[in-house]
Design a protein around this nucleic acid. Sequence first.
DNA 1: AGAGGGTAATGAGTTATGCTAACGAACATG
DNA 2: CATGTTCGTTAGCATAACTCATTACCCTCT
Lengths: 153, 153
Amino acid sequence: MLTNMPELSLGDDAAADADAVNALRSAVMRLSRRLKHQRVDESLSPTEMSVLGTLARCGHATPGELARKEHVQPPSMTRIVAMLEAKGLVRLEPHPDDRRQKVVTQTEQAEAMLEESRRKRNAWLSELASGLDEDEWAALRTAAPVLEKLAQL
Amino acid sequence: MLTNMPELSLGDDAAADADAVNALRSAVMRLSRRLKHQRVDESLSPTEMSVLGTLARCGHATPGELARKEHVQPPSMTRIVAMLEAKGLVRLEPHPDDRRQKVVTQTEQAEAMLEESRRKRNAWLSELASGLDEDEWAALRTAAPVLEKLAQL
DNA sequence: AGAGGGTAATGAGTTATGCTAACGAACATG
DNA sequence: CATGTTCGTTAGCATAACTCATTACCCTCT
């Protein structure tokens, strides 16, 4: 079964890693389904939220860049950006060097909404916290940046 | 922006937790989108895969139980189970004690498919491994069971 | 300069996958 | 045995992604 021996020192732990990925995949899928319902703003889809988060980190980006980062096809991103613009959460400006492209930036309104969103998430977090002990939380804090890296890889 | 003040007492932990949850949410959403594309069997949706995984762990379950575990409404589970049955991956039997309910069990074919799926995931895992160091993998291994617990909470 | 190939964003139409509402059959309780 | 409850299902609908095709623009090569 485990004939695939990577260069990296996975070694004996290959089976354990496979199990971990298995658990990870299942948990991520189910968690994402729950997060969908837990959305802080009813009028914003999860991907729209994610785009705003990306913009908050990057400052600005073109629709194409956003599509690649969110692993969505360009037409979908067009729609998403249009929605966000209609809601006054992002601004579209012409690209300085390339007139084919556009530059998407978040508005002050979006920033305020993200702040509000963070507050609401804290409430949800507190509720969940009752079911986890300190070690488990520590594990999540440590893993969070790794998961982000994984999502980008 | 980055208000990282390590030694500040109470509020700081809360802020760290909020950041972690923030990162977690974003990463989970994007990862789930990637996993959708990474499906090992083209003809199976992510939720269908997840149901098979649950069945592999539990042995058997009623549609209602499955719906609760997957955080899906009963009608959705009806459709998913019907799909799986049509593909010969599960078997539906009458409940021994309650004739309203049904018992869903996985077939040998499903078991073989899951094994195949595990092999393919190992390949994906190896590819991803090149982007993570040993510490990061350790973090994921530790967090995987916690994420599973979180998904169930 | 102009032609041709490549890339960005978008428009239209389709598909996938979840939901709610309403229903019939089987149980449980007075 | 009458009544309310639970389980699975059917029907209809909403959302959000996708693919394919189109338009506008950039860039290189002759």
